[in-house]
Simulated assay, not measured.
Amino acid sequence: MTALGFLYPGHSAEDDYPRIEQLLGSDIRVDLVHTDIGEDARREDALRALGSPERLAAGVQELRHAGAEAVVWASTSGSFGYGWEGANEQVRGLAVAAGMPASSTSFGFVHAGRELGVRRVAIGATYPDDIAGLFADFLRAGDLDVVAVRGSGIGTAAEAGTWGEAELFALARAADHADADAVLLPDTALHTVSYLTALEKELGKPVLTANQVTVWEALRLADRRVNAPNLGALFTREPIVQV
């Protein structure tokens, strides 16, 4: 049994995680601990408060007691809001506090892009444009070429969590770009797991979504590879061989 630990802010799309656990169909356990969301606002100051060391440290003891082998901070905006260097410092602090390998959703997107061998990506974000732009900057710092950014002006995680299939597909279609190798949907408050294969069929390319990438990143930290076709191309492709 491989136990994976996640620190998830609030409750907007928490049900994606047991769904992923079921779709993995193997000896993987997904343990979720909720962190205090504080002010639910997509502003830089609020996002930095969301991912503060104190808020993250508060949840790690429960994950240790559950036997987690790796922990991922399951918030994209609560990690890229710190910038590349700040987000690195954030996960280093989390690893020390947790006593296990650690990462965040934002780094998961970068690592997943490398795994799939994609270079050019399009972003479909629920966030306001300025916050979506910060995610684009983060990806560029991770050597991904961002060819298009689509923001949606949603100011809270709670509102993003109410979006259903129609809104999700409309966002993905609007975000796609002919030059993009993949489309990235970077909000862990957005329900996406039930629609991954349909999204990829619709767009004809890999689609990386926040909760999908978060669990994949934890598996990567735990050195586990699981083939799960219902979780999209990221869970079915062979790894890229670096030469």
Score class of each variant (00 low, 15 high):
170 A>M: 04
7 L>V: 07
88 N>E: 15
46 A>K: 07
160 A>Y: 02
115 E>D: 09
52 S>N: 03
166 A>E: 15
223 D>F: 06
80 F>L: 05
10 G>Q: 10
101 P>K: 11
140 R>I: 00
210 A>I: 09
87 A>M: 10
25 G>S: 15
160 A>N: 02
225 R>G: 00
206 P>S: 07
46 A>G: 07
42 R>W: 00
105 T>D: 03
210 A>N: 07
34 H>K: 14
92 R>H: 14
229 P>F: 09
210 A>L: 06
242 Q>K: 03
154 I>P: 00
107 F>A: 08
208 L>K: 09
216 W>D: 12
116 L>I: 00
208 L>M: 09
140 R>Y: 00
73 W>R: 01
25 G>L: 08
158 A>M: 05
214 T>D: 10
60 V>H: 03
139 L>H: 05
14 E>F: 13
33 V>T: 08
214 T>E: 08
229 P>L: 05
238 E>P: 01
213 V>E: 03
217 E>G: 11
45 D>N: 13
50 L>N: 04
150 R>H: 14
53 P>R: 01
26 S>Q: 12
35 T>R: 02
218 A>K: 05
56 L>K: 03
128 P>C: 02
192 T>R: 06
141 A>N: 11
193 V>H: 07
170 A>C: 02
96 V>F: 11
148 A>S: 15
75 S>T: 14
140 R>C: 00
169 F>W: 05
201 K>T: 14
38 G>E: 06
128 P>L: 01
73 W>M: 07
9 P>G: 07
229 P>Q: 07
157 A>K: 01
154 I>C: 12
195 Y>F: 13
108 G>R: 08
83 G>A: 12
45 D>Y: 03
239 P>D: 11
181 D>K: 04
142 G>T: 03
127 Y>F: 14
240 I>M: 14
190 L>C: 03
234 L>G: 12
31 D>H: 15
144 L>A: 12
45 D>P: 06
84 W>E: 11
25 G>E: 14
51 G>W: 04
90 Q>C: 11
196 L>N: 07
236 T>Q: 15
218 A>I: 09
9 P>N: 04
28 I>R: 01
133 G>S: 12
155 G>Y: 04
223 D>V: 10
241 V>K: 13
93 G>D: 04
55 R>C: 04
41 A>C: 09
68 A>E: 10
114 R>D: 10
1 M>P: 08
11 H>L: 13
154 I>Y: 03
243 V>M: 11
215 V>H: 07
216 W>N: 08
191 H>S: 14
138 F>S: 01
42 R>E: 12
152 S>D: 05
88 N>W: 13
155 G>E: 15
217 E>I: 09
95 A>K: 00
